[in-house]
């Protein structure tokens, strides 16, 4: 099979899928021309991500990595969420085919983009280097 059982489970039964009207931070990464877009919504209380939702346009692994990433940051502090690596998402899914690693990068970037939006809305200072430049060719090219 192309995908692990865990990937198929998260793809077919995605956790935290949907929109959030009153989100504290919203991040969108990817490019429709590349075939993947992830949009992530977070709700933050006292520095803790109390709720998270996502919408994804993309392949099976794009949906599965989004789902897994939301599970991994829900209930965690903002700082912990920022530490979520694409590698951790891949490991939690019992691996991804090499050509799909960029989906996990996208999931990591989607979390960061949502946090960045939360920081921007609340006037919180942060290191801009830490976040996605918006150039997805950069990630796609290097992870394929």
């Amino acid at each position: 099979m192309l995908y692990s059982e865990k990937v198929m489970d998260h793809f077919k039964n995605p956790r935290n899928v949907g929109k959030m009207e009153d989100a504290d931070g919203v991040g969108e990464v990817g490019n429709v021309k590349c075939g993947d877009i992830m949009k992530m919504y977070i709700k933050v209380r006292d520095g803790i991500i109390v709720d998270v939702k996502f919408n994804t346009f993309g392949c099976g692994s794009a949906i599965a990595t989004s789902s897994m990433a939301t599970e991994m940051i829900k209930g965690k502090s903002i700082e912990e969420a920022l530490e979520l690596s694409n590698k951790a998402v891949v490991e939690a899914l019992d691996g991804l085919p090499p050509a799909k690693i960029h989906c996990s990068v996208l999931a990591e970037e989607a979390v960061k983009a949502a946090v960045k939006d939360y920081y921007d809305r609340n006037g919180i200072e942060y290191d801009k280097e830490q976040f996605c430049s918006g150039d997805c060719e950069h990630c796609c090219g290097h992870n394929d």
């Binding site: 995605p14 899928v17 429709v32 877009i37 992830m38 949009k39 919408n55 994804t56 949906i63």
Partner: peptide
């Protein structure tokens, strides 16, 4: 196909 397309559109930020 109709059902799956509708579902995927419902979770697609592009469709939104």
């Amino acid at each position: 196909t109709r059902e799956v397309v509708e579902y995927l559109r419902s979770i697609s930020p592009v469709w939104e």
